[in-house]
Amino acid sequence: MARHVVATAGEIPVGGKKVVNPAGREICVFNVNGEHYALINRCPHEGAALSYGPVVGCFESKRPGEYALTRHGEMLRCPWHGWEFDIKTGQSWCHPESVKARTYKVEVVAGSHLAKGPFVAETVQVTVDGEYIVVEV
């Protein structure tokens, strides 16, 4: 496990995502209402790059004919067969226990803190007065 600096804080807008490549692993980092989450950029079904999928809410219903959109911006729909994943946990809507997209720990860390190391920053220039998105891989 190493901590990888993958973006500056604020670089990914709310509702946005960024594909990063720490340690040769393709990962998609999301900003869900100000919190950052990271999923492997590979659908557990047939391997689609999840980053092409739209970030959506949860389409729910209490009974036939009633519709409710909940958990705005917390779900990701796979760009191929449309399986829905909870961005925070990686769990799929249909089979939350058995089908999951791998998640990674993400933090926003102050540059001054990072200066104490250890961390890997391949593509991001780190300064002590910046804030950074760090993924643990």
């Binding site: 389409f59 219903s61 036939p64 067969h81 449309g82 809507w93």
Partner: peptide
């Protein structure tokens, strides 16, 4: 079909 299209019939 349900896994991909269930958002159409969310109940």
């Amino acid at each position: 079909t349900w896994r991909g299209v269930r958002a159409e019939v969310p109940w």
